[in-house]
Design a protein around this nucleic acid. Sequence first.
RNA 1: GGCCCGUUCGUCUAUCGGUUAGGACGCCAGGUUUUCAACCUGGAAAGACGAGUUCGAUUCUCGUACGGGCUGCCA
Length: 489
Amino acid sequence: MIDIRCQLYLIYAYRKVNRAMSADVVTRFAPSPTGYLHIGGARTALFNWLYARGRGGKFLLRIEDTDRARSTPEDTAAILQGMEWLGLDHDGEVISQFDRADRHAEVANEMLAAGKAFKCFATQDKIEAFREAARAEGKSTLYRSPWRDADASTHPDLPFVIRVRAPEGGVMVIKDEVQGDVKIGHDQLDDMILLRSDGTPVYMLAVVVDDHDMGVTHIIRGDDHLSNAARQMMVYEAMGWDVPVLAHIPLIHGPDGKKLSKRHGALGAQEYQLMGYPAAGMRNYLARLGWSHGDDEFFSDAQAKEWFDLTGIGKSPARFDTKKLEHLCGQHIASSKNAALQQELLDFLAAKGSDAMSKDRIALLSSGLDCLKERAKTFHELIEKAEFILSDRPIQPDEKALKSLDSVSRGILNALTPHLQNVSWTRGALEAVTAEFAEANGTKFSKMAGPLRAALAGRSATPSVFDMLLVLGREESLGRITDAASENG
RNA sequence: GGCCCGUUCGUCUAUCGGUUAGGACGCCAGGUUUUCAACCUGGAAAGACGAGUUCGAUUCUCGUACGGGCUGCCA
């Protein structure tokens, strides 16, 4: 007897603990496939991902494709690709909202049967005329259908939509973790359409049904949905469903403070990838945009997951700042492990459509990473600075480099060559032999650095001369120096 | 038009009634240096405006201005 009681209690306690650990947090990202994954959407996805991942919960992905005219498979693919690049992995299958149309209709009909919704036979022309008139008079354009209380016996045999019966009197309170309690009068709510005249569901119904069916516990989305939340609340109330925790986050604005739009340039996640920003830097920057954890600026994914919370989200819109993004990206590149960095670099090159590199070249690049990664803010810059590794002999010097290869300099390079032939190829030895050579020839290393840079890289701005010598090795280095020294200027 | 939300250095933000209003990016000056970066030190730089509450407001309330969102058989 006691045993059974104990067991029951243990089960009870276990469930309680489980709940306390919020093991059942479920968030979702629900973009509509009517364009690429823009930066605002990416941040919304990131917030949901961080919240779930930081709590051992689930992060779901749903494509809101109920608008057949505007939804395209290409856009869905672009969104998926963007998420993949950003490393925002979701749990379970990608859910298509369109595929669930029957279930949405089922709910609408349930509401109809319960008297929470009604059939409306008003034509679109009539409604438009009503709105036109209301606008002209400066009155509210909210539509309350004359059919909301009509008896079924008076229903004509005509096409109809199903509308929700908006409540009268009183106020709707949206409890929002970011915005606080937002009160909206019931008189601000219209008899919104649930099912179109062709029987297809409308977004406002579909989100609520899907979020409920998917067990979503926390809705984190753009605050452009804040007003919509009040309307969606009508469905929750009609169905007697629990309302998830709501968090409406401010939108991201462009550098000019205006709403982010195509005017502001490349905005798809893909574009940022192509510009060479590492995904980790992007995540860090985006997380920090509109959310803060004290003075922490540069942090890892693990820290972000641990720290991220709804209470740290600000209420005002943030502007996108490329400079700070770059700074953070530079930090992430510099602190990357070489192996991971190399892979990301190759992925970047592949995304750009560059030709695949040979194994030897990749190995060379990999050995150059230590001296390269601390000087690049983007992969683009890193590749740029790695040019000395990626070029083949004979090196074509650019204009500036050519200037440091005058006859005097070529003479110096010529004279230096034998000294490099037998020296042991280590930084210490190389530094010593060049210093000796400089002194013996009455010059300074700083005078020799330019010509050496030009010979080794064909450029005037490069990594350290010694770094390049070490990465390239004796044979290649001497080859390049000989090339440059013997060239006819 | 109606309803809702927002407003701290140029930008992202800290502050949860009492601070010389802190940090970061960027900018400027200096340092280091083998070029470019990186790095180090220092500096300039903010509470939209107006009332009210209070012994005391960046912080609470109201108004104004400005910005944003919603107001679709779009999502």
